[in-house]
Amino acid sequence: MLPPMFFKLLSILQEGEVLSTTWGEEVVGQKSRNILRLKITPADNQAELSCESANIVSLSPLSITRKITVFFDPEELTLSGSLEAVEGQELNLSCHASSSNPPVKIRWWLGYKELNNTIVKMEEGENGGMTTTSNVTHRVSREENGLRLTCEAFNNGTHFSKIQAAKLTVYCK
């Protein structure tokens, strides 16, 4: 029969650093457990957590390792390009979302009309996330003077939404 406290050592490691060596025990079930509470940040994305246990009868510690996935939102959303043009000219605008996991999707609005003439590029970002850049080209008309141009970034994984907006100025010929 095993001793009442089955596990002598229980430790939780993250990327080789010991986070906890405390445990609770169930004498009847001959179990030990460790509940680990962590404040997760984007830097923890894809980190490996390991749990090790050993007792006086084990030849070597038992362990299990899991990689964690952290969902996080972009810290910045930037709208760039000129918002002034003469009627009939094309505007070339860009909206960039910093690293997020999963990557955000970007939509463009001019007033209440969605602009679909976009080119989207995603690249590897910080903390295992992805950056998203959307470029839009739009030929302006005098009726659009004073309308609000909006870049909207949204993340289905975290239900995040953020906008950058500015007023469009169209000069008549």
Rank of each mutant, 00 (worst) to 15 (best):
E75G: 12
S58I: 11
E87F: 05
E84I: 12
I40M: 03
A47L: 01
A54Y: 01
V120F: 00
I35E: 14
K31D: 05
L38R: 03
E90M: 12
G129T: 05
T169W: 05
S82E: 09
H138N: 09
S80P: 01
S20T: 05
L13T: 14
I163D: 08
S100N: 03
A165H: 06
E25I: 13
T78L: 11
N127I: 02
Y112K: 14
E17H: 14
C151M: 09
G157F: 15
T132C: 00
L19D: 04
K39Y: 13
V86I: 11
L91F: 03
S58H: 11
N145P: 11
L79W: 04
T137S: 09
A97T: 00
L110K: 04
F160Q: 02
P3E: 08
Q14R: 10
L83Q: 03
V120S: 00
S11T: 09
I68W: 02
M122N: 12
L93G: 04
V86H: 01
N55H: 05
P42S: 04
D73N: 15
P102Y: 13
L83W: 03
G24S: 11
K162T: 14
I64D: 12
L115W: 09
C51N: 01
E114F: 00
S134D: 00
T150K: 02
L19R: 02
I35H: 04
C95N: 02
T137W: 03
I64N: 12
S53R: 09
E76A: 06
N101K: 09
N117K: 04
P4H: 10
G24D: 07
L91Y: 01
T150S: 07
E87L: 04
A47T: 08
L38H: 02
Q164L: 15
L77A: 07
C151Q: 06
T21R: 13
Q164I: 08
L115V: 06
V70K: 12
H159Y: 11
L62W: 10
R33C: 08
K167R: 15
Q30W: 04
L93P: 02
T133A: 02
F154Q: 08
L168W: 01
E123H: 02
K39T: 07
E114Q: 11
